[in-house]
Computed example of a mutant assay.
Amino acid sequence: MNAFRTLAAASLLVGSAVYLAAETIAAAAWRSPTYSYAQNWISDLGSATAGEFQGRELNSPLHAVMNAGFVVQGLLFGLAIVLLSRTLTGRLRHFTAVMGVVTAIGYVLVGTFHGSLQAQQDGTLGLHFTGAGLAILGGNALALVLGLHWRKVVATRTLGVISIIVGSIGLIATVVLLSTFGADVPSGAIERASVYTIVLWQLVVAVALLRNPVAATRPVSPRS
């Protein structure tokens, strides 16, 4: 089991690092216009075509870098969560594995089908938004549910509380993002509140697995 935990931790760390690096590199490449972390959506970085889309001017010369980041993040996240599920039991084990795969599929869809005017015209925009929904809701829901599980054990109570807080913030931010779609709000910042929570959770879980791998994945005892 230790091998599963170590590989899961490594996958979470590498996935989050690749994702953040890809976003930073792709955003820095924007020149005209410059990229706004407050107003531009993350998926704007992956748009393969330049032009106006939903009121935002897109021109991402390193879109391939961002899309590769989405795919790598998704595959490594899925691998890590499936491995993590093998250390759990019962329905939680199945839920964790399924949500890991769902979230991975979401990231891969986002990296494969881009958010742009061309995607709207060729009918693939729905696949992009479906992928975003699966990734964001899947990752944050997973953090929340596993947090509730970990909170029941003294050794993982802190990890559980952090996971509950992070997952809840991500889900609330998602609701806010959907309810303010098209409004004059910093939608890029709101979207990041729903996505960065997943990345933060990855890092927290990875550190917990590396510091105390047994406690981080031990089954809940009825006496805990």
Results as ranks from 00 to 15, higher is better:
residue 154 V to S: 10
residue 188 G to D: 05
residue 86 R to C: 10
residue 88 L to C: 08
residue 95 F to D: 03
residue 33 P to E: 13
residue 113 F to K: 11
residue 103 T to M: 12
residue 29 A to T: 01
residue 191 E to L: 00
residue 136 I to N: 01
residue 163 S to K: 10
residue 165 I to Q: 02
residue 37 Y to Q: 14
residue 188 G to W: 02
residue 26 A to V: 03
residue 59 N to H: 12
residue 100 G to V: 06
residue 121 Q to W: 12
residue 82 V to H: 05
residue 136 I to H: 01
residue 202 Q to S: 14
residue 69 G to K: 07
residue 155 A to M: 08
residue 148 L to W: 15
residue 31 R to V: 15
residue 1 M to D: 14
residue 157 R to G: 09
residue 219 P to F: 12
residue 64 A to H: 15
residue 99 M to D: 04
residue 145 V to C: 07
residue 170 G to P: 05
residue 133 G to L: 05
residue 60 S to M: 00
residue 72 V to H: 01
residue 1 M to V: 15
residue 30 W to V: 07
residue 127 L to N: 15
residue 180 T to Q: 02
residue 188 G to F: 01
residue 121 Q to I: 13
residue 105 I to Q: 03
residue 33 P to M: 08
residue 168 S to M: 12
residue 161 V to M: 09
residue 170 G to K: 01
residue 97 A to S: 13
residue 129 F to A: 05
residue 31 R to Y: 08
residue 164 I to T: 14
residue 142 L to D: 14
residue 80 A to I: 12
residue 130 T to L: 15
residue 95 F to Y: 15
residue 162 I to T: 05
residue 102 V to Y: 09
residue 105 I to T: 14
residue 77 F to N: 02
residue 12 L to P: 06
residue 220 V to H: 01
residue 72 V to R: 03
residue 213 P to D: 09
residue 131 G to D: 00
residue 180 T to G: 01
residue 89 T to S: 14
residue 102 V to D: 09
residue 136 I to Q: 12
residue 90 G to A: 06
residue 156 T to A: 15
residue 196 Y to C: 00
residue 159 L to F: 14
residue 35 Y to L: 07
residue 93 R to G: 09
residue 187 S to G: 04
residue 206 A to G: 08
residue 190 I to Q: 00
residue 136 I to R: 02
residue 216 A to S: 13
residue 115 G to A: 15
residue 19 Y to F: 14
residue 73 Q to D: 11
residue 81 I to M: 09
residue 103 T to I: 07
residue 35 Y to T: 05
residue 11 S to L: 13
residue 101 V to F: 12
